[in-house]
Every structure is written in structure tokens, then in C-alpha cells.
Design a protein around this nucleic acid. Structure first.
Length: 546
RNA sequence: GCGGGUGUAGCUCAAUGGUAGAGCCACAGCCUUCCAAGCUGAAAACGAGGGUUCGAUUCCCUUCACCCGCUCCA
């Protein structure tokens, strides 16, 4: 399948438009059109229903370690700046980067390390050898000393055994301590002085609070909805009588200054998340992690994503965030990715007690296998926590503890895009002339996700058919998203509905006038059968599912 | 952020240093008794800004967006 065709269909039929298109567009931002908003809302509603509203806390869910409760939340996009300092986003998202003009590579300023070295370098083009002093760097963290020697040997044109002629000065240090990068040999460069001055990369959107806001009033647009849940953990506990284990669900916009927005809506700077923070006993957290990982995977397949295009990928130890005891990505083989590549739809992470502890004590850092408070140069906490007690007291077990957290974090736009990609189909269908089959493009949405559930047509615009069709339309409209169309040939109307993924078309014809039945047509099979007008609603409700 | 490519109606494609032409779609009507392309009518574009020129969609510069490859993706 060609991605351009889907993108074109999305625009033509009003699923997705480029943001600010009349001004030439804005990279990394997308608008949902009339059909797109219906589709995305259906995705979010399905999630909200399946995870929260429809969850029966009295019934043991398949695969769940025990009964559990769910609660909802809608927190603000702008929160207290300290939230992001304690969560780690402020430090992590606020990097200085240097670019290498020669190798075109980009490095984190604080990751490039090296040593000064002095030695004889043979001149080029017959120039006499001269002593040079250069700061040799590497990104190799495993075998730093060896890597530096190899780079030095290469630069000075020496054999390994001749390396002793070089004079190393000072300890291994970060280039950030140098001040001047003109004598620095970049990690992948052949000549010194190719690194640019460090530039600030702020992955969080900055804003100011108050009409006169200055530097002191800086705030950030949230890069994830999760922190709003942690910040309200105590409020939810105190106001809803929920007991551990329970989850808090939230849907909302988040913002990240992606360096390279690309691939349609896949990597957008403004996007929407569907997140759950699930709080449980530390001892049961591993079981809950597995439950949520598998449950979330199944949610996508239940809504129509083909399991062979989906992948559950457990992160390697090295890939895990410093606080996580396990993370799995649910990934989809998007058609715009190279063959065999998958793109993340959702991450399910075991976050331990990192988040609640951070908001109590302050920003944490790993020390051995412990998380400890990160201190600044003055010995004080680098980022102070709220100081509030976010522990949980279980009056049955008579114990107080910090709940551990399982976080299934899903991208609403990515899920919507995956459902669109999966739905896109082209097939051959017979034509009225019965000569040759014609190509048909249709979107094979799961009925729960289809933006329009049914369309109502009079076969022709006379003999009272439009009136009957209009009545049926009015009746259905009360309950579901339907369209009415009486224009042009009926075949064309079917095709139009196919292209926007409407599962069923209802046609009023001559026989309707006789016996009160209408035809019901299936989008995928093109099959038709007759249904009594009065039984239409029941028939449709049954076939559409929830 | 770097390199390469692209940019004319919603889509596909024309033409031109002298005020842009068509097909399809969509729209209004007609005709149509079950799977798009029958008739009539109307509408609709040179991505943006600047320069050269009497005159720029065309030449030059800048910029924006999209695609491909790197880079980045906490």
C-alpha cells in the first residue's frame, strides 16, 4: 500500500488536514477534519469505555491478578514547573547538543568526553612534522581508553606500538569543561575544530504565565499527561474511596518539540495521549505489568489491527529508563516504515515507585540498584519534591507503603493512524456494464470505529422513496452517526460510503413501497439482503456491536 | 539540523518572459429501479516573500511545506 494514497484520501474525504495549510502549513501539526474527528473520537471513546466506564470492578478480568477499580481524571496542560523538575523531564528534555560539521553527526554536549594529547604530526603535502596538541574525543563509554588510543593512532598516523611517543595530559573530561572547541577532534571527525558551539535543545514547549510574565514566570506545556495523574494521586484517593489496586485514566493533549516531525501524524509536536497509571502493591507489580501489557495488546487486535502487523517488544535491560523494572512497546508495522520496521503505538512500563517518590522527596537518581535523591553541587536536593506524604495505608493489611505503578501509555493519534492504515483496502468489483471489474477503494474500519455507521438512500429520487428514506434517516440519526444521500447513481453513492468506511448502506426501492422492507448492504462483501423497516434499528445495533 | 528531490484547481496532468488549458472529483439541475465515469450549467490553481524586467507562473535569491536518506526520538 502506498502511504501517499492514504494521505490523499485522508485529505480528500476530510480525515486529516495539515495545520495552518492556508499559510503554507506548519511542520509537525495536523488537524482532524469532519470525518477524522469522528474517527479519533471513536478511538478515544472505545478506550475510555473499555478501560474505565465499562470496567466492572466486581468481576475478575481474564488474566488479572485480582479485582481492581478504575477512576478518570482531566488535569491541566500547564502545571507547576516543579512537576517537570521532579519528574526528570526538565533535565532530560533540556539538553545541549553539538553538531559536527564534518561527520554531520549530533552529540549530547555532556556525553562527549576525551583527553588532551601532544605529539608529532606529519605535515600534509611534504610539510615538516610539527608538534600539535589536540583534544581527542570519543562517544565510547564501554572502552573509553582504548577508543581514545585508536583515535589518536589514526590521527597522528602511528602504529599501535608507537603510541608511546604521544604525551597524554590530564584526566578524561567532558568537552563542556573546555570552553573552546577549536582544538577538539570530534568523535567521528578527521580534523579538529569541526564541532559547533553547544546549542540548547528544549524538548518541552516553554510558555509564560501571566500577561506580564517574564523569566520567573516560565512554565511548560506538558510533554505527557501522566504527571497530572501522579500530582492528583492523593486527591483521587481521598475523594473516591478507591483502594489499591486501582488505576487512573486520562486522555489529553501533550506537546513535545520533536526534532524531526515526520511520517504524517506519527511524530507530531502536538499530540494526544491515552494514559493509565495503575497503582498496586509492590509485591504484585510484576503480575500487573504482565496483565496490562497483554490486555492492551488485545485491545488493538479486538478493534481490527492484524496481529501479524502488531508486535509486543520487551525492552532490553540497557534500553530501560533508569527507574523502570520492565517496559514493553506495542508496535505496528506502519506502511511508511521500511519493511520489517515497527512504530510504537503504546508503551507499557513498570515504573516502580519512582514517580510518587519523586513528587514526595524530589528528583531521584540511580545509585547502584537504589534510587536516591539527586543532590546539587551545594549538597542540597537538585530539585525539591512537594514534601507531601503520598504513601498509601492499607487498613486491611495494616501496612503503609508507596504503591508501585504500571503505566500503559497510548498515543491516540498513532492508534488512529494505525486503524486508518489497517483499514485501507483496494479491491475489484463488478460494474453495471458487466464488462470489466472496476477498482474500488474502501476503508474497512471496525464498526465501533467507523465515523459513519450507516447511509440511507432512496434508489431513485421519485415515487415517494426519498420521503421514506428520510424517515428512516431521521429515526437512525437519533441513535448513531448516519448520512443521507439521494444524488446521482446509487452505485456512486455506495462507492462514496465505501471510501469513508461506512459499514452499512440502506436503500429504499420499489419493493419497499409494496412490503415495507429495505435492502441492507455490507461494505466488505457487497452483499445485500432485505430487512423490515421496523427491524432496521435492531438489526443495525446488533451488527455494529457496542 | 545536514544532503537530495518536489511544489500549477480537491486529484492527475498541460502550456507560456505578455493576464494559465483539460480530464476526473466535488457542486446545482436533468436523466436514472442496485454498485463510479449520460446531458446541461456554474465554480475552482501557478506554496509564500523579495529581486531582475515595461511585464515573472516561467529567470535569480530567500523562505515555507511535503517526500527520500542521515541525525534525533527522553
Amino acid at each position: 500500500m502506498q502511504m501517499e494514497e492514504l494521505v490523499a484520501l485522508c485529505k480528500r474525504r476530510g480525515f486529516l488536514f495539515q495545520s495552518s495549510e492556508i499559510y503554507g502549513g506548519l511542520n509537525g501539526f495536523w488537524d482532524y477534519g469532519p470525518l477524522g474527528v469522528l474517527l479519533k473520537r471513536n478511538v478515544k471513546d472505545a478506550w475510555w469505555h473499555d478501560m474505565l466506564v465499562g470496567h466492572n470492578e466486581q468481576k475478575l478480568q481474564p488474566g488479572a491478578p485480582s479485582l481492581y477499580e478504575m477512576a478518570g481524571l482531566d488535569s491541566t496542560i500547564i502545571m507547576h514547573p516543579q512537576i517537570w523538575k521532579c519528574s526528570g523531564h526538565y533535565d532530560l528534555f533540556h539538553d545541549f547538543m553539538v553538531d559536527c560539521r564534518e561527520s554531520k553527526k549530533r552529540y549530547r554536549y555532556d556525553h562527549v568526553k576525551g583527553r588532551w594529547v601532544r605529539g608529532l604530526k606529519h605535515g600534509e603535502g611534504g610539510q615538516p612534522a610539527a608538534e600539535v596538541r589536540v583534544f581527542i574525543t570519543t562517544m565510547d563509554t564501554e572502552n573509553t581508553e582504548n577508543a581514545l588510543k585508536e583515535r589518536a593512532a589514526h590521527y597522528f598516523g602511528l602504529r599501535k606500538k608507537d603510541l608511546d611517543s604521544l604525551v597524554w595530559e590530564g584526566p578524561l573530561t567532558e568537552i563542556s569543561t573546555l570552553g573552546d572547541l577549536s582544538q577538539v577532534l570530534g568523535p567521528d571527525a578527521k580534523h579538529p575544530g569541526t564541532l559547533t558551539e553547544p546549542r540548547e535543545f528544549n524538548l518541552m514547549f516553554k510558555t509564560t504565565i501571566g500577561a506580564l510574565g517574564g523569566e520567573d514566570d516560565v512554565a511548560f506545556l506538558r510533554p505527557e499527561t501522566a504527571q497530572g495523574i501522579f500530582a492528583n494521586f492523593k486527591n483521587v484517593c481521598d475523594s473516591t474511596r478507591v483502594k489499591v489496586p486501582f488505576g487512573i485514566a486520562q486522555i489529553g493533549k501533550s506537546f513535545r518539540n520533536e526534532i524531526t516531525p515526520r511520517n504524517f501524524t506519527f511524530r507530531s509536536r502536538e499530540f494526544e495521549q491515552m494514559e493509565i497509571e495503575f497503582f498496586c502493591y509492590p509485591g504484585e507489580s510484576a503480575d500487573w505489568y504482565r496483565y496490562w501489557r497483554d490486555r492492551r495488546f488485545k485491545w488493538y487486535t479486538d478493534l481490527g489491527l492484524a496481529s501479524e502487523k502488531l508486535r509486543l517488544r520487551e525492552h532490553e535491560q540497557a534500553e530501560l529508563a533508569h527507574y523502570s523494572k520492565g517496559t514493553a512497546d506495542i508496535e505496528y508495522a506502519f506502511p511508511f516504515l521500511p519493511e520489517g520496521d515497527f512504530g510504537e503505538l503504546e508503551g507499557v512500563a513498570h515504573r516502580g515507585d519512582f514517580d510518587l517518590r519523586s513528587h514526595m522527596e524530589g528528583k531521584l537518581v540511580r545509585e547502584g540498584d537504589q534510587l536516591v535523591l539527586e543532590k546539587g553541587p551545594d549538597g542540597q536536593p537538585k530539585h525539591r519534591g512537594s514534601g507531601k506524604d503520598l504513601t498509601y495505608y492499607d487498613d486491611q493489611r495494616k501496612e503503609r507503603f508507596i504503591p508501585h505503578v504500571i503505566e500503559p501509555s497510548s498515543g491516540a493519534d498513532r492508534a488512529t493512524l494505525a486503524f486508518l492504515c489497517e483499514a485501507y483496502h483496494v479491491d475489484q468489483v463488478p460494474t453495471a456494464e458487466k464488462k470489466e471489474d472496476a477498482q474500488r477503494t474502501y476503508l474497512k474500519f471496525h464498526p465501533r470505529l467507523a465515523p459513519v455507521k450507516a447511509a440511507v438512500f432512496p434508489l431513485v429520487k421519485k415515487d415517494g422513496m426519498p420521503e421514506i428514506a428520510g424517515d428512516i434517516y431521521g429515526e437512525l440519526k437519533e441513535k448513531m452517526s448516519v448520512q443521507y444521500d439521494e444524488k446521482g447513481a446509487v452505485g456512486r453513492r455506495y462507492r462514496r460510503q465505501d471510501e469513508i468506511g461506512t459499514p452499512f448502506c440502506i436503500t429504499v426501492d420499489g419493493q419497499t413501497l409494496q412490503d415495507g422492507t429495505v435492502t441492507l448492504r455490507d461494505r466488505d462483501t457487497l452483499q445485500q439482503w432485505r430487512v423490515k423497516k421496523d427491524e432496521l434499528m435492531a438489526e443495525l445495533t446488533d451488527r455494529l456491536g457496542k
